[in-house]
Amino acid sequence: MSLFFMNFLNGVSLGMLLFLISIGLTIIFGVLGVLNFAHGSLYMLGAYFCFQFVSLSHNFLGALLLAPLFVALIGGVIEGTLLRPVYGRDVSFQLLLTFGVLLVLDDAVRLIWGSGYHIVDPPAFLGGVVRLAGFTYPVYSLFILFIGPMIGLGLWGFFRLTLWGKKIRAASMDREMAAGIGIDVNRLFTGVFMFGAWLAGVGGTLAAPLRAIGPSMGEKIIIESFIVVVIGGLGSFPGAFLGAMILGLINAYGAQYLPKATMALPYILLAIILLTKPRGLLSKES
């Protein structure tokens, strides 16, 4: 029973990280119509920037503030110079282009920080452990469990209550109409991409104390993020949350109950959901 409970916590905290990475992906797709293959690399950049800031200043919270901003800036450059020419083209071109971006970022990281692994410590007040159901459990994971929904709620409020949020939602429903009512679509697109990149950066920064930071760490996460946003419903915000939770829990309980099948489980789940709900669980269209 306690193992069941522990793996519930494990699954949910993994789900929270997946959620943070996936919402950026789903927002970018929802508004720009671009499936960003390099999103995992932006997450990776978040982790590396976090490592850099923490090793310079020993201040994790400062890194949490700064690292995602740097990622957002890089996102802005990518959107402004590379993505803009391919809007409206077939999704395969965007995949190829963002794949090119992924290759460049992966190698750039290796050239700057080397091919070895780095680790980041959580701040001291989050570094401890608590006892739960006969296990010790890291405070930092509880922090993730807490901050995930906070960021989720913050985003929800942003989209529902602020002017920018409403503009973004309008643009994601109908780009032409948005332009018609005087929204500067170019600026909006840049803003949204930077925002998505920022979220990936937040994911990377928050993941840094839990993961070994190494080359190509973004490639592992990108397919999982694709699965999350597709089973949740592309462009859907609550869908990304639901998808991330499902994937996180499947990972945790799979390890406990079906260890031989963990590799296939996410894909089997994906197929079942897409065949029963072709647009994902919480899609806007169905």
Binding site: N10, S13, R211, I221, A252, A255, Q256
Partner: peptide, 13 residues
């Protein structure tokens, strides 16, 4: 694998 916690708790258990 990014997250080993379920494996770790399962083995400890």
């Amino acid at each position: 694998t990014e997250d080993y916690t379920p494996y770790i708790t399962t083995i400890m258990n």
